[in-house]
Every structure is written in C-alpha cells, then in structure tokens.
Computed example of a mutant assay.
Amino acid sequence: MSLPLLNRRCENLSVQVFADRRQMGRHAGEAAAACLRNRLNAQDNVRIIFAAAPSQNEFLATLAAAGDIDWSRVTAFHMDEYIGLPADSPQRFSHYLKRHLFDIVRPGQVHLIPTGDAGRVCREYAALISRAPVDMVCLGVGENGHLAFNDPPVADFHDPAVMKVVALDPVCRQQQVNDGCFGEINAVPTHALTLTIPTLMAASRLFCMVPGSSKRAAVRAMLALPVTTACPATVLRTHPACSLFTDVDAYGELTHG
C-alpha cells in the first residue's frame, strides 16, 4: 500500500497527505479499523460517532470491508441531521450511513437521529450520547471549516449543549448542492440538528477525512489560522489524539506548512 506523500504535525494534530482520495480513504479506513479492533480487545463495547458526506465514501468503504471486527459490540451514532426533510428522504444522513456502513456491518446498536419535534429530539439524543464516553469520532470538514453542522456563525468551543438546533450558513447549504446531494440551494433545508463541538472533542480518538480541491481553503485555514470559530476545524489541533487524512487536491503544494 502506498505511503503518505507527507507526514507532519500541526500542534497536536497528525496530518497525512496522500496522492488521491482513494489512497486517503484506504489508509484512514485501515487506521480506524485498527483502532476499533484494539478498543474491542480492551473493552466490551465501543461507541462511535460517524459523519455522513461524500467525503467519507472511500473511508467508509474500507471500514465496512475490514475483517476481524465484532460489530455486534459497537454502538453507532451520527453527528447531524437536517430538519424538515421527510423521514424517507434519500438526502437524510441516516439513510446515507445505512447505505454506506450500517446495513453492511450491522452494529449491535444504531442510534439514528429521528424526525419529530427538534427540542425533544435534541434532549433524547443528547441523553443517549451522554450515557457513556464516546470512543471514536469519524468526521470531515466543511468548505467553510465547519465540524458537523457547527458553521462559523454558530460554532462554540465551550458550548454547554450536547446537541442543538442551528441555522445553516449559506456556504454550507451551497456545499450540499456542490456535492450533488441537492439539485439547487432552495431545496436544501435551512436548519439542522448537530452535535456540538465539545461533544465531538470529548471522544478519545478522532479520525478526520478531508479530500478534494473544494476543501483546499478549509484545510489551509484549519492548519494556519489561530484556533478560532471563524474556522471551527482549527480546534482539532488541540485534541490529544486526532488524525487528519487528506489528499494533494485538498492540501495543495506539499511545501505548504
């Protein structure tokens, strides 16, 4: 298997750059699978939060194909969901994760974010997340530097909530069109539910997959700016065990940084 073209650290953050997103996804998926095996060898149950986005396709395919994992001892969550889409809408993140992972590996417990009253959903999902520590988070970074749906206008590194209702930034909504998830921006919901940044950062191990030229500005910002909610992803540099897997399209010239 090809080695990364570049290995570096940015404060606490481990950064690996690969030639293309296929190699990135394979390496990231194998690293996450190894972490999951180690956790399962050490404890009865592993709790994981997953992102749902095209940037995760190659990573999830590798993870789904990994052997020697007892998925019956995995409890799975996802980190965000649109408000206002019908329960059977193919754009719902729960459907993406079922197609790409959950229906393949069959985790012992899967907690999908349901439709319904947003306040009630937040309270009930927060209670599920808070039952025990989260072991792993598998996430991406938005074009505006968001983590989950914590866009710059609503991101809070000290948020007291576990999950909250947010208004989606126009850049974030346009990204959903750019990614091919919606035909035009007026079809993209204006509000969503998201786990907060402290909830994601509380996990003991983070894997972050960010491929593609559309993410280049976000990757540059997350590695170069001060830690700031102007680019929420900068906070990943403060986590004690977070790895960024990216490709040349997203990272840019290998002399950068």
Rank of each mutant, 00 (worst) to 15 (best):
V210L: 01
V210G: 03
V210F: 01
V210C: 08
V210D: 00
V210W: 03
P211N: 01
P211G: 03
P211E: 03
P211D: 01
G212S: 05
G212A: 02
S213M: 00
S213N: 03
S213P: 15
S213W: 00
S214D: 10
S214Q: 04
K215M: 01
R216Q: 10
R216A: 04
R216S: 02
R216E: 02
A217H: 13
A217V: 14
A218K: 07
A218P: 11
A218T: 13
A218S: 13
A218F: 10
A218N: 04
V219M: 04
V219F: 02
V219I: 14
R220I: 03
R220Y: 07
R220E: 11
R220W: 02
A221Y: 04
M222Q: 11
M222F: 03
L223W: 11
L223I: 14
L223Y: 14
L223V: 11
A224E: 14
A224H: 15
A224K: 11
A224G: 13
A224M: 04
L225Y: 10
L225A: 10
L225H: 13
L225R: 15
L225P: 00
L225T: 09
P226I: 00
V227A: 09
V227Q: 04
V227W: 01
V227F: 01
V227C: 14
T228E: 15
T228A: 05
T228P: 01
T228S: 15
T228H: 12
T229C: 02
T229V: 15
A230E: 15
A230W: 05
A230K: 13
C231M: 12
C231K: 11
C231T: 15
C231Y: 10
P232G: 08
P232T: 12
P232N: 09
P232R: 06
A233D: 10
A233G: 05
A233V: 12
A233F: 03
T234R: 07
T234G: 11
T234E: 12
T234Q: 08
T234Y: 08
V235G: 02
V235H: 06
V235Y: 07
V235E: 12
V235R: 13
V235M: 13
L236C: 03
L236I: 13
L236V: 09
L236F: 04
L236A: 01
R237V: 15
T238N: 09
T238Y: 00
T238R: 06
H239G: 06
H239N: 12
H239P: 14
P240W: 05
P240E: 10
P240H: 14
P240F: 07
A241T: 10
A241K: 14
A241Q: 15
A241M: 06
A241Y: 13
A241D: 15
A241H: 14
C242G: 10
S243V: 13
S243W: 12
S243L: 01
L244E: 08
L244Q: 14
L244M: 12
F245S: 00
F245Q: 06
F245R: 10
F245G: 08
F245N: 04
F245C: 00
F245D: 12
T246V: 06
T246R: 05
D247Q: 09
D247T: 14
D247H: 07
D247M: 08
D249T: 08
D249C: 03
D249G: 03
D249P: 08
D249L: 09
A250L: 08
A250V: 14
A250S: 09
A250G: 08
A250Q: 12
A250I: 08
